[in-house]
Amino acid sequence: MLNAIFHNLAVQQIQVAKGKNKTLRNPLFYEFYQRKLAEGKTKKQALICVMRRLVNIIYSMMKHKTEYRAVTLTERQVS
């Protein structure tokens, strides 16, 4: 069940809204997913990479008892 939950979370993170504006739900995870596809991974493998990243983030939050602080694309590009 936990695997199914992380699968659903990963799919939601890389979703693109339908319609004219095509907004991204989470640009960082979408970029990460696209980068994995560009590296030659299949869609399923890239999704598993997103799932693993989510697991690492949640584990770190639980370990350090912190809240999630999303990094914006501009902050990521600077560092």
Rank of each mutant, 00 (worst) to 15 (best):
A46R: 01
M51P: 02
T23A: 13
Q12T: 14
E39T: 03
I14G: 04
R53Y: 04
Y30S: 12
L28W: 06
K44N: 05
K22D: 04
L28Q: 14
Q45K: 08
M61F: 06
I57A: 09
R53A: 08
Q15S: 13
F32V: 08
F32Y: 11
K43V: 07
I48C: 11
T42A: 01
M61L: 15
T66P: 05
K44D: 04
K65Q: 14
L24M: 10
V50F: 02
Q45D: 06
C49Q: 08
I57Q: 08
R25C: 08
A46G: 01
L28M: 13
Y33V: 04
S60N: 14
Y59Q: 13
K63R: 13
L28P: 07
K43C: 01
R53K: 15
I48Y: 14
L28A: 11
K43W: 01
K22Q: 09
K44H: 08
K43Y: 01
A17G: 09
L54Y: 00
A46T: 01
G19Y: 00
E39M: 06
I48H: 14
R35F: 09
Q12L: 14
I58G: 02
T66Q: 12
L37R: 07
Y59V: 13
R52N: 15
H64V: 08
M61Y: 00
I57R: 05
M62L: 15
K41E: 03
R52G: 04
K65S: 11
F29Q: 01
K43D: 04
T66M: 12
T42S: 07
T23P: 11
C49G: 02
Q15M: 11
K20E: 12
T42P: 02
K44E: 10
N26V: 03
V16G: 03
Y59N: 14
L47T: 05
E67V: 13
